[in-house]
C-alpha cells in the first residue's frame, strides 16, 4: 500500500475510533463515507459482475436462446415499482415470486441439511457406560431441556418447571460461549487495525522521513 493510501486509511481509522472518546463530526464523516462507499461498491459489483454479463450480454449475444432471462429482468424491475403508487401492486407480485422460490429452496435445504442431520446427531448411544456415553447423555439432556423451555403451550409448572430451569442453564452456557467468541472477534478487528496503523502507516512514514 503506498503511503498516501495509508495516510487516508489511517485518518479514517482514527476518525472512527475517535467515537470512543465522544461523538464528533469526524466520526460522522467517516461513518457516512463508509456507508456510501459500501453501497456504491455493491451496486457496481452486482451491475458489472452479474447483471451485465448474465443478462445484457447474454441477451445481446443470443436473444433466441436466452429469451427466458427477460423474465428475471422484468421481475427485478417490478420490485422497484413499489415506489410508484399507481402500480405498486406489481412490486408485490415480483416479491411473491422471489419468496416462493426462496422458501421452496430453503425449506428443503434446511430440512435435509439442518433438521435431519442434527436430529440424527442427538440419537446417541448411552450404553455401555463410558466417558463418551456421559457426554452423549449431556447432549441428550441439554437438547430435551432446552426444547421443554421453548414449549409454551403449557405453563411451566410441575415437572416442566425444573426441566425448563435446566434448559435455561444450558442456554446460558451457550450465550456465554457466544459472548466469549464475540469478544475475541471484536478484539481481532482491533488487532487488524492496530497492525495496519503500526506496519503500514507509522513505520513506512518514519522510514520515509528518516530515509
Amino acid at each position: 500500500m503506498d503511503l498516501v493510501s495509508a495516510w487516508v486509511a489511517a485518518f479514517l481509522t482514527l476518525a472512527i475510533y475517535s467515537f470512543l472518546y465522544k461523538d464528533n463530526p469526524l466520526y460522522r464523516f467517516a461513518e457516512s463515507l463508509f456507508v456510501g462507499l459500501s453501497l456504491g461498491y455493491e451496486i457496481g459489483i452486482v451491475l458489472h459482475r452479474t447483471i451485465i454479463p448474465n443478462l445484457f450480454q447474454k441477451l445481446a449475444a443470443d436473444p433466441g436462446r436466452n429469451w427466458y432471462l427477460v423474465i428475471g429482468g422484468v421481475l427485478g424491475i417490478m420490485l422497484y415499482l413499489r415506489y410508484v403508487q399507481r402500480v405498486s401492486f406489481l412490486g408485490r407480485w415480483a416479491l411473491a415470486v422471489y419468496m416462493g422460490y426462496f422458501v421452496g429452496v430453503e425449506l428443503m435445504q434446511r430440512l435435509h441439511g439442518d433438521v435431519l442431520p442434527q436430529v440424527k446427531d442427538t440419537m446417541l448411544p448411552l450404553l455401555p457406560l463410558s466417558l463418551a456415553s456421559v457426554q452423549n447423555l449431556l447432549v441428550l439432556v441439554g437438547v430435551l431441556s432446552v426444547l421443554v423451555y421453548f414449549y409454551f403451550s403449557r405453563p411451566h409448572t410441575g415437572i416442566l418447571r425444573p426441566v425448563s430451569r435446566l434448559g435455561i442453564w444450558f442456554i446460558m452456557v451457550c450465550f456465554g460461549a457466544s459472548f466469549g467468541y464475540t469478544v475475541m472477534a471484536r478484539i481481532s478487528l482491533l488487532v487488524g487495525r492496530l497492525t495496519f496503523l503500526v506496519d503500514d502507516w507509522v513505520r513506512p512514514t518514519l522510514a520515509a522521513i528518516l530515509g
Partner: peptide, 20 residues
C-alpha cells in the same frame, strides 16, 4: 456449504468462520 453442498452433494467441506 454444510447444509447444502455437503448434505445434498456429499462434498467434503471445512469452514473458516469469524469468531462471532
Amino acid at each position: 456449504w454444510a447444509n447444502l453442498v455437503n448434505a445434498q452433494f456429499g462434498q467434503t467441506v471445512a469452514v473458516g468462520a469469524t469468531a462471532v
